[in-house]
Design a protein around this nucleic acid. Structure first.
Length: 429
RNA sequence: GGAGAGGUGGCAGAGUGGUCGAAUGCGGCGGUCUCGAAAACCGUUGUCGGUUUGCGCCGACCCAGGGUUCGAAUCCCUGUCUCUCCGCCA
């Protein structure tokens, strides 16, 4: 959410930044609403002050036993009261309208973010590793002989429908190994705090990390009003909601491995084969809470944490900066990591690392202060480190052999009881 | 699910109808003392909104939302969260 004062002080800068995301004319609407709101607040507070004064006099009259005066003032208070109530109602409505409007406006891109209408405007900033030369036509993950016995879409469809999978045997063991490996690396080498969170949350949390109010159709809600998190960015970030932290507590760098749930509304027909795009998947997430000054450096740091995972797994990847037209709603700047998938002959997104500046901090009312200083909203960052299912795909496709077996990355071996490959039969050996 | 207790400032914790934005302690900030520090002592210290060039003034906030009252942290109702006991249970 944006600071109304900043918009008021410099509407043209606000407008110009939003224009880079393809939005125009919003500042006029905001400022009109804001001045109406402020006028109403002034009127309502003036009326309240008069009511309070009369009420105080009434109390004094009563105390000295002047019943006539007391009764006169009591009538006056009653009169003022209805006037106050009406105006306060209007002021509250306008205040709410403004807030509701502000909640639907995306974050402003940083100056350094490239302009562009959609993903075609993204800019590659790093490329690591080189795709292997196959002396056979590499298959997609679900086509590999050694993978097939452990990746069962038919049974999943019976249980739950499309976009679900049942994983078995060697495949799920590698999946589990990947998650453990990611967590251990983040904890031991990157200094992140391992955290475990609920996956069902209250509405407020979904507002805090901007899934709501605009993207309700992308997530699932239970019959009693909880939301299933689409990412543990929601829970990790909201751990500080409403808090006033001491600056010395920052940065807070967390990681969590959770299930994630997404309706994938609007992506019908996209990535329908294999387990690239599922309603339920696992992700190891990274979230940092820090001061606004530190956010950009933390963004680089977090990007490096995600890249380190792919490098240790020896998966070729590239890092891109998303352009203004492709960035998420809450982001000021986003790096996407795309892993090489030989089966698709493409780089595909496996991680997205964003800094949100104070955008979410303001929504959550999460603040920090230096001793003796004024409270300020915290900055927040989030990034996948990594999507476990997609990482599994990358490991399987990159490690596949002509005979249908899969060689597994060395860093996973000790998580697999010393086993190094999935045989063409589907057995770990 | 049943019964009970409770949610007060950064933290702990008083306050059961006006003089309470709220005692006290801790913490923070400033000072005295000291070569310096500690201790001790003195002073100071909530947040948000509106308004003002500024000093300041006004309004709101004691979990949230309603209500009673001239007046609510305090009384009533609803919700919510926490704790204790019982039941059930991975």
């Amino acid at each position: 959410m944006h600071d109304i004062r900043a918009i008021r002080e410099n509407p043209s800068a606000f407008e110009a930044a939003l224009a880079r995301r393809g939005l125009t004319g919003i500042s006029t609407e905001i400022l009109t609403l804001d001045s109406a709101r402020r006028a109403k607040i002034l009127a309502s507070e003036t009326a309240t002050a008069a009511q309070n004064a009369a009420s105080k006099e009434a109390g004094a009259a009563k105390a000295r036993g002047d019943d006539a005066e007391f009764n006169r003032l009591r009538g006056l208070v009653a009169e003022k009261k209805s006037e106050t109530a009406a105006m306060t109602l209007e002021a509250d409505q306008l205040d709410r309208q403004l807030r509701d409007l502000l909640l639907t406006i995306p974050n402003l891109p940083l100056d350094e973010v490239p302009d562009g209408p959609d993903e075609s405007g993204n800019v590659e900033i790093r490329r690591w590793g080189s795709p292997r030369n196959f002396d056979f036509i590499p298959r997609e993950h679900f086509e590999i002989a050694g993978v097939k016995p452990g990746m069962d879409f038919e049974t999943a469809a019976k249980l739950s429908g499309a976009r679900f999978v049942v994983l078995k045997g060697a495949v799920i063991r590698v999946h589990r190994a990947l998650a453990q490996f990611m967590l251990d690396t983040h904890i031991e080498e990157h200094g992140l705090l391992e955290t475990w969170t609920p996956v069902l949350v209250k509405e407020d949390a979904m507002y805090g990390t901007n899934q709501l109010p605009k993207f309700a159709e992308d997530s699932y809600q239970t019959t009693n009003g909880w939301w299933l998190i689409p990412t543990s960015e929601v829970t990790l970030t909201n751990t500080v909601a409403g808090d006033l932290l001491d600056e010395s507590a920052l940065p807070i760098r967390m990681t969590a491995h959770t299930q994630c749930f997404r309706s994938e509304a609007g992506s019908a027909g996209k990535d329908t084969s294999g387990m690239l795009r599922q309603h339920q998947f696992e992700k190891v997430e990274m979230v940092t809470i820090c001061t606004p000054d530190a956010a950009l450096a933390e963004h680089e740091r977090m990007t490096n944490c995600a890249q380190a995972i792919l490098e240790k797994l020896e998966i070729p990847y590239r890092t891109i900066v998303l352009c203004t037209g492709d960035m998420g709603f809450g982001s000021q700047k986003t790096h996407d990591l795309e892993a090489w998938l030989p089966g698709q002959n493409k780089y595909r997104e496996i991680s997205s690392v964003s800094t949100c500046g104070q955008f979410q901090g303001r929504r959550m009312n999460a603040r920090f202060k230096v001793p003796g200083g004024k409270p300020e909203f915290v900055a927040t960052l989030n990034g996948s480190g990594l999507a476990v299912g997609r990482c599994l795909i990358a490991v399987l496709e990159n490690g596949q052999q002509a005979d249908g077996s899969v060689e597994l990355p060395a860093v996973l071996h000790h998580y697999l009881g010393g086993k190094t490959k999935i045989a063409a039969s589907g057995v770990l050996e």
